[in-house]
Every structure is written in C-alpha cells, then in structure tokens.
Design a protein around this nucleic acid. Structure first.
Length: 751
DNA sequence: AGGTCCGCTATTTTT
DNA sequence: TAGCGGACCT
C-alpha cells in the first residue's frame, strides 16, 4: 500500500493499518485522544475511494446526534460529497428511519409517534393509577426502568419468567399492559424503536436481505457503549458475511449502569472473528497527563490491554489543591480561570468537571460573582421543556386528532374549565367504544353538563381552527400561530415568578428553531411532521445560542469525547468520587475508575485536581477523605498547591480539619512522599502553546465570520495544505467542518 | 384553579 | 439544602 496515498498520508502507522485494513470484521481499540474519529472517517472515505463502496452502501452508527453530525460533516468534507448522501446517524435515528419507511412491515400505523423519557414516565404512571397500584410500592420510575432494561436486552414480556417472584410477576404484567397500551396509542418509546426495527428485519427475510445487500459496510462508533439489543441489531444487519468496522475503548466504558455492555467488544471479536487494531498514540495530552491516566487505569483488571503514549515530552505538572470547603474550591478554580483569561486564552478552553450535577452550584455562584460567562451542560434540554412539549402537542393534534398522548397533555392547558370528572367521562367512553380521546370527546359532548360541554367544545374547535389556519404555511409561521392562538404564550406571560419569562423566551426560541430547521436530506415527511420527530429524537443542545466565549461546566459523563486545554477535575473525595454507592462495590468501582480516567484524559495541557476538606451535602457539612484515585497518581507528576494566605481559614474547626491533616492517606492507601509545596506566585508562566505541527491560519479560539453560517469560533484544524479542514462552532448554525481553502473565513474579532 | 404547606428524597444520561 | 408531588385551603 503506497504510504503516499492522500487518505493515509496524514495518519500514523497504526491509524493507517486500521484505515486500510483488509475488508473483513475489524475491531479498533482506540485509546483516548488517539484519533478515533479520524480513523473512522478516513476508513469511510477509504472504502469509497479504494474498495469500490458507494456512499449509499455505507452505514455509520453513533450514539449521540452530535457525534453523528460531526462524523457526517467530516466525511462529506473529506470526500466532497453532497450533504445527506450517507446513512449516518444514531442507533435510534436509523431505527426510526427504517420504521418510517417500513411501517407496514413493522406493524405500525403510518403516523406513529415517539415517546420520550418523560412521556413514557407519564404513561407508566397513568397505567399504575388505573391499576390501582400504590406508587410507594410500585414506583413509576422503577417500573419504567424495568421495562426499558428488558427491552434494551431485546426481551419482550412474553419471554420473561417470574421465577416464583411475586414482584417480578407483577412487573412482567405491567410490561405487558404498558406495551399493549403503546400499541393501541401507536406510540414507540426509545427502546422500542430499536427492538421493533430489529424484529421487523429479523422476521422478514426479504427486507433483511435488501438491507444487508445495501449496507455492505457498517461502521460503529463507541462500541463499548452498545447494549444488548444494539449489538444484536448490528449482528443482524451485518449477517455472517458482513464486515463491520467497529471502534471502541473498554477503558472509557462508563455507562454500564444504563445497560451498556463492554463485553460486547470481546463478543464482537469472538462472534465475528474480528481482526484487532490498537491505537495507542495520543495526540491530545502532555506526557505528564498521560502518565497519570495510565497509572490510574492500570489498577483495573480485565482490560483489553492498551497503554497510551505520546511523542510529546514533559508538560506542566498536575496541580493539586486541597480546598477548605466547596466555596474555597470554587474560588481557587475561578482564580486559575482568570489567570488563563489574562493570558489571552479563550474561556471555552477551561472546563470544570465534576461527578454529580449538584456540584455545579458552588462554581456557578462563584462565576456569577466574578462576572465570568459560563455554560452548564446537562439538565433539561430544549425540546424537553414543558412549554415546548405543550406547543408540540398542539401541533401534533392539528396533524393527528387521534393522538391521545398529546390530547391528555393540553386538553386543559391553558386551563379552560375542563375538569377531572369530564375527562374521566371521556376516557371511559373512549375505552368502551374503542375510540380515540378526540372522537370520544365529540361523542360525549351531548351528555355533558352545559358548562363542561362548552369548555370541551371550545377545545375541539380551537384545535380545528388551528389546523385550518396553519395549513400550507411555512413551518415557523405554523409554530408561531399555535403559540399565540392556543393561549400558551399568554398563559406563561401571566405567570407570577420570573420562570414565566424564561418560558416565553423559550417559546420564541422554538419559532427560531423552526425557522432554522432543515429536514435531513432524503427525509420524505412533510416539514412539520419531520420537525416533530426531530424534536423528540434530538432533544436539542441549543448550543452556542448565547455569546460564544464561556467556561464550560459539566459532569464527567458528559465530558466523554471532549477535550480542553485546561481541565479542573473537582470534588475528588471519597464518597463523592468514587461515589459512595460504588465505593464499596467491587462491581461498580472499576467504572468509577474509568470515569476518573476519562476525566484526566480530557486535559490537553493543564490539569488541576481539587478536593474539599469539608463540603455541604444535603444541608449537612461533611468531612471526607481525599479520593483514593489521588493516591493512584504518581506523586512525582503532581505539584501540591497550598492555600493562599488570603484565604481566611478558621483556625480550629471541632472534629475536622486538624485531625484530618496528618492522616491524609489518599483514600486510605499509599503515603505520599513530601511534594514540596510552592506558593502560587512562584509558578512558571505558562509555556508556549503547542502548535499542531504546521502554522495555522488562525489561532484556535479566534472569532471568524463565514458568508453563509455567520460568526463562530475556530475549534480545531485537521490535515494540511490544500486539504486543510477547519472546525468552527457557529453561533447560529452549530459546529461545522469546512474545507479551509474554500471556506472564505474572515476574522471577526473587534469586540 | 391556583396557591401554600408538608414530607420525602437525594449519582452518572442519551435516545 | 432544595425540589418535587400530594394534600389541603381559599
């Protein structure tokens, strides 16, 4: 194979071997920062260029929409393909696409709807109530969890046995009832998308044959995160003759608790007789950071075996700060961030990573006080907000009057005098006569007391009027009209607390989202239907909407796959990280350690570790030992930072501090040899920035303007010369990969 | 129908 | 501590 091949030229030897691997089942063990996405995208390009694959014959599967978008952008840029030529998507997105095409074969109504997590929760609750079950004994979340876990493993209720366990018997009965209800309503929860498409393919040989033929090349990203049904799905669609190319890292498997099975990597190797390639050269972090990461992960057993290395030498020491409490911890971090900002580094290069969401609070307060812009990832996403879902429910009803889930949601919202007794009557009629709630409502009208009848009629007429008014209009006008006319906007505008204000803003933002919405190429649904499916499946990061330079706060879980020049890994205390629910569980502890590994390997140049000697948790002050993971990092890589003199630190706190100090045993293990404490002021000024090999047209973090996409921030470069690509995070259009030579980017600083 | 008070609970999260 | 749901009050 000529190394000069342009697709292989920018790769290292291990990457080349993987990208140009002979056709056949292939497993790439890709360490953190080893160029995994690059290998995946170049492999796709390689298949098309060198192996005669057609773009249509490629199926690339990821876990998140973000990863799918990124992969799509990079492959299309690399190959100069028109957008949408490739089947790239999440497992759920692709399953959805299959089911839309083959709803008949899957036994679904053509207009089936998708239930998100919250919809599913409501449905389960309703079912439990109908069954007269006590919610204390039968916790809806747990019932929901049971159903999803079974579906995630590919199991239908009829496959399950109660093993003489009465609780289990009841759960199985509820699963059965729940599924029956979903089928009646024509709705699919997330797990059902996969299971149903799996069954449709499995049970219909001609359908399966067609897709096996079509997708001669299947690529899967983050394979360590696949659950049972996803693995079965991949196996089914590839078949014995298939040659899936899968990439994953067992050391970054952090989702076992929600059904991911790392074992799928070994199973894949065995079931397919896959050839294994390892990517161990890291391009992201300094040798110091990698040294720490390797030492930590080394303590896990049963690894597939991989050790990251880098050509880079040295690096700044890892800095460790023992904070007095969580406020001091936050102050310390903010001070370091200020320091970075003073040196002209973008704030976006700083990330605060923590184990649990509650920890963000102290940092947020400190950031607000310091007037530093920040963004917290996680929490409710845009399309999951109640006011947004209410609007979507109205829109759904205008399209499908028989949508009972939507009917229930907004029939009395804003309140229009339709009470529980009226609704119960309607439900009863619907049950008896097997009607949708909509039809049942119409049928019930004559027999209702006048006031209730008038209120219900008003609702029915409202939806009819909405439907009529928005017919044929552009999507954003449809959305705007529904928000205004349904009374939702006024309802929220009148709310007392300032939360109403935020809700109104969100409604406005929904109109903007509708305006910006572009259906996926090849999507045959009408724009509104397409938008509604998109809203559920892609709950929306609503990224970059606000200003563009901000500190990023997120959990370790959400940080997976990202990288930052400066990382603050905070809250390194026993009981917090590792979490107390895992600390004593030999099954769970390795996953916490992998989480720590993920955290460390996010850092490119600088890593700060902090812990607090005392911390308020649930309103109580707790004193905890430093995390055992600290003791797993070689002391020579770490520089301890002593509290600044300016910190007012109580001299004696009964039952705390003092006693702890001398027995600081790093999670009860290994004694540290005296790292010499140095005052902050004596620290070396930051080193010169690592250039990516050749000179870059813009510094990372530069603000640029694109003729079509508007303004954004330069995130990274890849390739060089005429092939140089640049990734930009546009405020309006999100992240895009562009061919630098054609992108026509202008500097857009000036303020 | 909307507000208020009480008691319970409390990792990690994508689709 | 705080956020939620349910019960109760107006």
């Amino acid at each position: 194979m000529p190394a000069a091949h342009p697709l292989l030229a920018p790769l290292n030897e291990a990457q080349r071997a993987a990208v140009s691997a002979p056709l056949g089942p292939t497993l790439v063990l890709a360490g953190a920062g080893s160029g995994k996405t690059r290998v995946l995208t170049h492999r796709a390009a390689w298949l098309i260029h060198e192996c005669g694959a057609s773009p249509q014959g490629l199926l690339a599967v990821t876990f998140t929409n973000k990863a799918a978008a990124e992969m799509r952008g990079r492959i299309e840029t690399l190959l100069d393909l028109p957008g949408g030529a490739l089947w790239i998507g999440t497992f759920h997105g692709i399953a959805h696409r299959l089911l839309r095409r083959h709803w008949r074969e899957a036994g679904l109504p053509q207009n089936f709807q998708i239930l998100d997590d919250d919809d599913q929760h409501r449905l389960v609750r309703k079912l439990l109530k109908e069954q007269g079950l006590d919610e204390q004994r039968w916790v809806p979340r747990e019932v929901q969890g049971f159903i999803n876990r079974e579906k995630d493993e590919g199991r239908r209720a009829k496959h399950l046995e109660d093993r003489g366990d009465a609780t289990r018997r009841e759960l199985i009965r509820l699963y059965t009832l729940y599924q029956k209800r979903c089928d009646q309503l024509g709705v699919l929860d997330f797990a059902e998308l996969l299971l149903r498409s799996f069954e449709a393919l499995r049970d219909q040989p001609q359908l399966l044959a067609a897709y096996r033929h079509r997708f001669a090349h299947v690529l899967v990203d983050e394979f360590q995160d696949t659950n049972g049904i996803q693995y079965q799905w991949v196996k089914l669609i590839c078949g014995d003759a298939g040659r899936p190319f899968v990439v994953g890292d067992d050391d970054q498997s952090i989702y076992r608790w929600r059904g991911a099975r790392v074992e799928n990597m070994q199973h894949f190797r065995r079931d397919f007789g896959a050839t294994v390639y390892k990517l161990e050269q890291n391009y992201r972090s300094t040798a110091v950071i990698l040294g720490a990461a390797n030492e930590v992960i080394r303590r896990n057993e049963d690894r597939l075996g991989k050790e990251l290395w880098t050509e880079a030498r040295g690096g700044e020491p890892i800095r460790l700060y023992a904070a007095f409490n969580e406020r001091d911890e936050a102050d310390f971090v903010i001070e370091r961030i200020r320091e970075q900002a003073r040196q002209g580094q973008p704030l976006t290069g700083c990330a605060v990573l923590y184990r649990s969401n509650a920890q963000s609070r102290a940092f947020e307060e400190a950031l607000v006080a310091a007037r530093i812009p920040y963004r917290v990832y996680g929490g409710l996403r845009f399309f999951e907000r109640a006011e947004i879902k209410d609007t979507l429910a109205y829109l759904r009803l205008t399209q499908t009057r028989s949508d009972d889930v939507s009917f229930e949601r907004v029939v009395n919202l804003p309140t229009r005098g339709i009470g529980q007794s009226t609704l119960e009557r309607v439900r009863e009629v619907a049950r008896q006569r097997e009607l949708s709630l909509w039809d049942a409502a119409a049928a019930t009208l004559p027999s209702l007391p006048p006031r209730a009848a008038a209120a219900l009629l008003a609702f029915l007429q409202l939806v009819d009027r909405l439907a009529e008014a928005i017919g044929g209009q552009p999507l954003q006008d449809q959305v705007r009209h529904v928000i205004e006319t349904s009374g939702l906007r006024e309802h929220h505008a009148r709310e007392k607390d300032n939360k109403g204000e935020a809700r109104v803003e969100n409604l406005d933002e929904l109109v903007n989202a509708a305006e910006a919405f572009e259906p996926e190429p090849g999507d045959e649904l009408p724009p509104l239907a397409s938008f509604l499916a998109h809203a559920t499946l892609e709950s929306g990061e609503m990224q970059a909407a606000q200003g563009s330079d901000y500190v990023q706060l997120m959990t370790l879980h959400s940080a997976k796959g990202l990288e930052f020049p400066t990382v603050f890994l905070v809250g390194l205390e026993e009981g917090l990280f590792p979490s107390e629910r895992s600390a004593f569980d030999l099954e769970k502890l390795p996953e916490e350690r992998r989480l720590c590994y993920v955290g460390i390997t996010r850092a490119m140049q600088r890593l700060y570790l902090t812990y607090a000697e005392s911390r308020r948790i649930y309103g109580r002050t707790e004193y905890r030992a430093p995390s055992r993971f600290l003791g797993e990092i070689p002391p020579q890589l770490v520089e301890e930072i002593r509290p600044r003199l300016s910190v007012s630190r109580p001299l004696h706190v009964p039952g705390s501090g003092q006693e702890r100090d001398h027995e600081r045993g790093w999670g009860g293990r290994q004694e540290r040899s005296g790292g010499n404490p140095r005052p902050l002021a004596a620290q070396p000024a930051s080193r010169s920035r690592q250039a990516a090999g050749e000179d870059l047209p813009f510094k990372l973090g530069t603000r640029v303007r694109h003729p079509k996409f508007g303004e954004g921030i330069v995130l990274r470069f890849e390739g060089n010369g005429a092939h140089q690509q640049v990734q930009v995070n546009f405020e309006r259009a999100g992240q895009k990969w562009l061919m630098f030579a054609y992108a026509n980017l202008q500097r857009a600083d000036g303020g």
